[in-house]
Design a protein around this nucleic acid. Structure first.
Length: 293
DNA sequence: CGCCAGGTTAGAG
DNA sequence: CTCTAACATGGC
């Protein structure tokens, strides 16, 4: 069983991808083992566990789950390609950023840093909701408890590999059952409501695929708990709309404030104006601004 | 103790 | 359409 390899674009840094994936010790949905990432994934109702490594100009995928069909291996390969955003040509963004005072230094320092996606729409929306109005560390704590309680896992050589909970499982609970995990009432209600919206097919990745940014955003915002910020976050991480732009994001505001030596955070109007320069690359501009924090 | 965090909603003006 | 209070709690 030889590993699969995926060719890499020039502007790609595996090290920066790893550092992003390794930013919280509470992350259960993948493990950093040495200089590789191990992840469990549902593919055609099977749980597949695989390791992503790096050598020269390619990523390698080695399967910890044995006896997989070629079709499944290829789906995992496609998943990794999508997850690490290997298809985007960053050259136009870099040439734009080199002319920009805010981004110039960041794209030099973090050359090859790409948006690690969240191909599972349910996961990306719930993760965004968990992160609403609290610090990231606590958001990771909430996610850890949530995944431990409602997600399944596989055991390989004494290591647990977790999968994000399905909407069906989550929808079978009440908001009150989330309170012991230290969800606020509001977050608990949003979480269950969003799970129900997936179960009754009010939202699905299938339905939103192919819609314009504006149309998809309008659909998402109909659901309680999803506002402009959350919708943009999901569109950035799941659908990879290059112009998804979380205007209200506190992290972006702080990054701009720091980089411009401002005394207080910029107004929303100011942020909008700054982002005009990044038209078509708003999502990537946001990634690098976040990285500056 | 105070302030803020990768916000959203409902209600008022 | 814009503005505001309430929500809720850990981290620093």
């Amino acid at each position: 069983m030889s590993p699969i390899s995926i060719p890499l674009p020039t502007e790609f840094s595996f090290e920066l991808a790893l550092s992003f994936l390794n930013r919280s010790p509470y992350e259960l949905l993948h493990k950093i083992e040495g200089d590789s990432v191990v992840k469990a994934l549902y593919v055609e109702d099977e749980i597949v566990v695989f390791r992503i490594g790096h050598q020269r100009n390619e990523l390698t995928i080695e399967f910890l789950t044995k006896n997989l069909s070629i079709a499944i291996e290829q789906k995992v390969s496609a998943y990794v390609n999508e997850w690490f955003d290997l298809e985007t040509d960053l050259k136009p963004f870099y040439s734009l950023a080199r002319k920009d005072d805010l981004l110039r230094e960041l794209v030099r320092k973090y050359y090859g840093y790409r948006i690690i996606g969240q191909p599972d729409l349910f996961e990306s929306i719930i993760w965004a909701v968990l992160g609403q109005q609290i610090n990231l560390q606590f958001a990771y704590t909430l996610k850890q408890r949530f995944v431990e309680q409602f997600g399944s896992h596989v055991l390989i050589k004494d290591q647990k590999y977790y999968l994000f909970p399905s909407p069906e499982v989550v929808a079978n609970h009440t908001p009150n059952q989330l309170l012991p995990l230290q969800f606020s009432r509001q977050k608990a209600a949003y979480t269950i409501g969003i799970a129900q919206s997936f179960v009754n097919d009010t939202i699905s990745k299938e339905k939103l695929k192919g819609l314009s940014l504006k149309e998809a955003k309008e659909e998402l915002i109909k659901v309680k708990g999803i506002g402009n910020w959350t919708a943009n976050y999901a569109l950035m991480k799941t659908f990879r709309h290059p112009d998804a732009f979380p205007l209200e994001d506190a992290g972006v505001h702080n990054a701009i404030k720091n980089l411009m030596n401002m005394k207080s955070k910029p107004s929303l109007d100011r942020v909008k104006k700054i982002y005009r320069k990044y038209k078509g690359w708003e999502a990537y501009a946001t990634l690098y601004l976040w990285k500056s924090l």
